[in-house]
Nucleic acid binder design. Structure first.
Lengths: 352, 352
DNA sequence: CTGAAAGCGCTAACAC
DNA sequence: GTGTTAGCGCTTTCAG
């Protein structure tokens, strides 16, 4: 339609009566520019609605971006393996813009390990970092240092209210719990007992799991008898004992598990103890979870989409670093309901 | 790690003892090149594993891409308004690469209108077209012409097996019906009557709606008494009559509507006739559907995500045209289950 | 048939 | 402080 020929830096320069060098300086706030000249250029920039050509920009500047990823060891927990799997496609997308991604892993069960890895990240002098801040205090330390070094960072999976990241990427945990409640209440069985299992590795996470539980309770209301259990999955013998007892309560109709690993742990025990009549809702598309979903032991999974979370995190950070894009303070993912019948469509889809 | 300095055309030229112009010619098979020279250059290309720099490529060639979009009039049907809404974000993403999108609309109820619009598309000589081939025969005509003119095209929403598009973007309709059945069967009410409503505008679409029905039937099996109704929504008075009678059958426990508009039409009638106890599963996040989902008249919506479909279509076509990317023959979207509790997380999410 | 050279829009080094 | 200019890697004339 409108022969909206793209405005170039050169055009801006002419209109403002300066050189391209000066325009470049005010755009990037680098070097020195006389105050009145800057004003004039900024005006022209504004009024023309100038948009830089990213191709030319990237082509013209040869420096490579290095962004660090700090997550739990993928070998320890499949959830984090999924998260890590987002690195490859991101690299494919961004490597032609000269992006490098350095993954750093820490031990899910050791806060000291987080601190150590954080140090390594810092000393590698990255241009930006994307981190899953599993350990609260250690994370705050890291953020302080990143702030000091002016290194931008993006949080994902776990939010930390005290932090000031470029962006947080994750889900609304409270609403997630509500969805869980909704799914559990679908079959209006007479049995109104609901067991909530928090099976976690680090105590730091409890607060986030509790948010899910609150959502669940708020949705279900007083008509249900909800009991919650805080368990540590390290001691599996003991776990078996405890869970077995809970599952055999005569009025138990449903179970909600707040973690992805926990989901298949409970599913396994349910099957072992022949309690597959109890409705089960849990999290994420781990292989074991898919197995039990297929078998009907798990009724629904809520997908947190860790892979996509790292992709979006990397993409956001890169966009910020490369193209100075504004990022949303929060990027909340949809609460995807996964059932036996639609799970295939998720697994087969590449656009997801 | 490996200081894999990118190989440029210039390097290839030197290694083959020719000029960059010649290398460019063999890469793009344009112009004339002596057979032996071509061989030599191709060898070097192979052995070095040369990968062109897409940024430079696009920057260097100033021609603008024009892609045509051919869909039903957004004013006629909110579903298509959603589809059209994908144009804007796509343009924002790709306009800097010199992309132009020309939307062409046709009348959902008039196959001749499709033919007319198709002609217009053709005469605008686009570089590629993305089309919702609602009318079967007219679409085949269009494809024949596009094939002849060597204009690549992408199908979306509706697949046409006889066509050979670059890519089809949509959903697995049969599996979609299965998800519908799964959702309807969740509350195991005693009433086993299920009504399937196909409320469509063009008869061409029937075959696709039937695919959903087959999925539904295959999932529910013989335990349910399934009756299906083919209705045309043009005559709303008559529709009211018919549907009212169906809804008041004493054993009716659930209804499945195969179209997005149909979903809120049935919901409206259900509310009007006080039949909100009947479970209702339908399609898509139209405003009216959201309203009835919120009210509890609709139990679940399956999201076809028309907006994202056009975005992906445009993105695919552009990637093909600009960067010669290989496209997947089929891009099947996940079958998203939308409930009262997770709908907000979808509406609020930008990454979706 | 082939080579040389002028861009594409932006960055960054250098000169004044 | 500001202007000039040489690239970035590729495409596209234009000669010959």
């Amino acid at each position: 339609m409108s022969d909206n020929k793209n405005i170039r830096i050169k055009d801006i320069a002419e209109m403002a009566g300066v050189s391209v060098g000066t325009v470049d300086r005010v755009i990037h706030k680098r070097g020195k520019v006389a105050e009145e000249v800057r004003k004039k250029v900024e005006n022209v920039l504004q009024s023309t609605g100038y948009k830089p050509n990213l191709l030319a920009r990237t082509l013209g500047s040869k420096k490579a971006l290095k962004i660090a990823l700090l997550i739990p060891d993928p070998k320890q927990d499949e959830y984090w393996a999924l998260a890590e799997s987002g690195v490859k496609p991101s690299l494919e997308e961004w490597s032609q813009y000269g992006l490098e991604i350095a993954p750093n892993f820490f031990d899910l069960y050791e806060s000291t390990s987080f601190a150590t890895s954080a140090k390594e990240v810092l000393s590698s002098k990255p241009d930006g970092v994307i981190v899953a801040p599993i350990f609260h205090n250690e994370s705050l330390n890291l953020f302080a240092e990143l702030d000091r070094d002016q290194i931008p960072y993006v949080l994902f999976n776990t939010n930390i209210p005290e932090a000031q990241p470029l962006s947080f990427i994750g889900q609304d945990l409270y609403q997630s719990g509500k969805v869980g409640g909704e799914l559990l209440s679908l079959d209006n069985t007479e049995k109104k007992g609901v067991a909530v299992f928090h099976i976690h590795e680090s105590i730091d996470n409890s607060v986030h799991l509790k948010a899910k539980e609150t959502g669940l309770r708020d949705f279900l209301g007083t008509a249900y008898d909800i009991e919650s259990y805080d368990l540590n999955h390290v001691n599996s013998g003991e776990l078996n004992q405890i869970v077995s007892k809970i599952l055999h309560q005569s009025d138990l109709g449903a179970a909600f598990v707040s973690t992805s690993q926990g989901t298949n742990i409970i599913a396994t025990l349910m099957e072992k103890h022949n309690c597959t009549h109890i409705k089960l809702v849990g999290y994420d598309l781990l292989a074991a979870n898919l197995h039990y979903l297929e078998k009907g032991v798990i009724n629904f999974l809520i997908n947190q989409n860790p892979k996509r979370m790292t992709q979006v995190g990397i993409s956001h950070l890169t966009n910020h670093l490369l193209f100075h894009k504004e990022l949303p303070r929060e990027e909340l993912f949809p609460l995807e309901i996964i059932s036996k019948q639609n799970v295939g469509s998720y697994l087969n889809s590449r656009i997801h």
